[in-house]
Design a protein around this nucleic acid. Structure first.
Length: 580
RNA sequence: CCGCUCGUAGCUCAGCUGGAUAGAGCACCAGGCUUCGAACCUGGGUGUCGGGAGUUCGAAUCUCUCCGGGCGGGCCA
């Protein structure tokens, strides 16, 4: 008999353990059961694929070995096993087992994490002095999902917003303002004005070598602590941070100003860091700059790839800052793990950061570092997402458009909603659609941003999931039923009920799979399947017209589904509404 | 030239610690609302899994090679 309190939503693990033991008992030295959810209903609910490989090793007939393994299993009233094909073991859970698992389930909330870790998640990381643009969407949304899930399963997630407040871009901005006499007005300027200055400045930086030289001088002056420049700079930062927070609030991102760990905060660490590298003999002067050359970045032809830690003019490139930041994550934040939600274009850079930090012993072996890369945001025609004149699309404009579009669609479909309700619902749907469209695709590839797809309200979209949720809520409104609660009985007789019960019980497995590689599409697909399974159940299984036992059982099944949907969407940072 | 990454249905994408007949959504076609919300459900798929070779009982998945796209490769970040 299975102890549900322990195995609830850990079906796969339970089977894995069970079958592994049976394989050992059947004389297999190092068994790999390879338990997976079955792809087809005819192959049961789960299948173990490991018998064939083991049979090969032992030089036995696979089906005979499968039979021997099953013979080693203690009696299993909850599972039925079947040998199929060349030697698969197909497993089916009994309806009674599913029913008991659900009846004893307090909710679909995950179990406590057995080994909590401190995990720093670097995400969003906008450059200050500019408005946030569409390019910041991916890191922000992907990263926010990661911290939500980590916290959900009991880890300590430390949000790290590595905002760019300190570098050459500020040098050219300050130089430009000084040259054009805009210093006074810039002090009080809105961010959009600052951005214009910034664009003009970076254009000049590229075209005018003399100006570029001046700009670099300003960086050095700023880094040396020039009071006038510093005051101006602080005004820029404050304006930018306000803007950033407004975008986060609108997008429903859990970042706050307190999570900002700006580049400038590592300013005082850079020289000591350089010293440390020097003392360890890792530094080499090359063309006037200080570089670290590691063997692992050597080309086949012997060419060496430098990791530059100080420029020839004495300034520090971002590698130096990122090294200091990584060391800070270990020394000060006491991280067990550092995740970087940063674009794929930074792959080489981050590999260098990790490698140099390890070579210099800034971080210990057991601290795991991971670059969670993602691709670009493209338009439907496959070109980068820019305005017609090639400028970055402002993130706040995208969010507003999403809400506007959702409101239009809502007005055409919904009845009986007040303007105020429509406003709220349009925000939840519009923002949810953007986030879901982003998360639903594989993180690593480029992503096509398409309004019509994400807001079509059909197919694998946030509105479909939100709609499934409102249907369940409506059921409870309609019936006047009070919440069923954890101990209400679930009876399962139809295939639709079996499917829905099983799906609900697989929530934790979806989360586990997500945590392997932080691919949110795993969670999205799970929720989409859950919603689809519910819709099928809903169409085929009458609820309110049934007798008391069946009625409350099915209401409970619906309620559990609503809980799972709401929790799951919540992990993706997507809200639900009672009606839409 | 070197490195990383991707190439799966008309389109957007899953599947990749090797497993059964490669799956979804969109679009398209045909059905289903006097009954719990039809933003839904049911049925309809002849795909060189970029090409080739290799490893294996078995390859979309692993290895090699070629082709094609994207992104990187010392003084921007």
């Amino acid at each position: 008999m299975i102890h549900f309190a322990e195995l609830f939503m850990k079906i796969k693990q339970t089977l894995e353990t069970l079958i592994r033991q049976a394989m050992v008992d059947a004389g297999i030295p190092e068994p790999k059961p390879i338990v997976k959810q079955s792809q087809r209903a005819e192959f049961g609910h789960y299948q173990a694929n490991g018998v064939m490989a083991a049979a090969k090793q032992l030089k036995q007939a696979p089906r005979d070995l499968a039979k021997a393994i099953l013979a080693m299993l203690p009696p299993q009233p909850d599972f039925s096993f079947e040998i199929a094909g060349p030697g698969f073991i197909n497993v089916r859970l009994s309806n009674d087992c599913l029913s008991r698992a659900l009846s004893q389930a307090a909710s679909t909330i995950a179990l406590a994490c057995p080994a909590p870790r401190r995990i720093v998640v670097d995400y969003s990381s906008p450059n200050l002095a500019k408005e946030m643009h569409i390019g910041h969407l991916r890191s922000t949304v992907i990263g926010d999902t990661i911290v939500r899930v980590l916290e959900h399963v009991g880890h300590t997630a430390i949000r790290a917003n590595h905002v760019g407040d300190w570098g050459a871009q500020f040098g050219s901005l300050l130089a430009y303002l000084a040259e054009t006499g805009h210093n006074e007005s810039a002090q009080a300027a809105a961010l959009s004005d600052l951005e214009k200055f910034y664009q003009a400045a970076s254009k000049k930086f590229k075209q005018d070598p003399e100006f570029a030289e001046t700009a670099r001088g300003y960086v050095v002056k700023l880094q040396a602590g020039d009071p006038t420049l510093k005051q101006l700079w602080q005004a820029f930062i404050a304006t930018s941070m306000d803007h950033g927070q407004a975008v986060y609030d609108k997008l429903g991102i859990t970042l706050s100003k307190a999570d900002a760990m700006p580049e400038s905060q590592y300013n005082d660490d850079l020289l000591p860091l350089l010293d440390s590298l020097q003392n360890q003999g890792l530094i080499e002067r090359s063309d006037g700059a200080l570089c670290v050359f590691l063997d692992e970045f050597k080309g086949k032809d012997g060419s060496r790839l430098p990791a530059m830690v100080q420029k020839s003019d004495g300034g520090f490139p971002y590698l130096a800052t990122d090294l200091a930041a990584l060391r800070y994550r270990y020394q000060t934040l006491k991280a067990d793990e550092a995740l970087y939600v940063v674009g794929a274009s930074q792959q080489l850079h981050l590999r260098q950061v990790f490698a140099v930090a390890r070579a210099a012993d800034f971080i210990p072996e057991q601290l795991t570092t991971r670059h969670l890369a993602f691709g670009l945001v493209l338009k439907a025609d496959g070109t980068p997402f820019k305005t017609r004149d090639g400028a970055d699309v402002k993130l706040i404009d995208v969010l507003n458009e999403a809400v506007d579009r959702a409101k239009t669609l809502l007005a055409a479909r919904s009845e009986g909603l007040t303007d105020e309700e429509q406003q709220v619902i349009a925000r939840v749907i519009g923002i949810g659609a953007i986030k879901y469209a982003e998360l639903q695709k594989n993180r690593t590839t480029d992503y096509v941003f398409d309004w019509d797809t994400m807001l079509s309200f059909e197919g694998n979209t946030a509105p479909y999931l939100q709609y499934a949720y409102t249907r369940i809520r409506s059921l409870f409104r309609k019936s006047g039923a009070s919440p069923m609660g954890p101990n209400s009985e679930v009876v399962i007789s139809t295939t639709e009920e079996t499917a829905l019960a099983l799906k609900n019980l697989q929530f934790q497995e979806a989360i586990d799979t997500y945590l392997d590689d932080y691919q949110a599409n795993v969670l999205c697909n799970y929720l989409f399947e859950l919603a689809g399974t519910f819709m099928t159940f809903y169409e085929h299984c009458p609820i309110l017209s049934e007798n008391q036992t069946l009625r409350s059982s099915r209401l409970r099944l619906a309620e559990l589904t609503a809980d799972t949907l709401k929790t799951g969407l919540g992990l993706l940072g997507i809200e639900t509404v009672e009606r839409m």
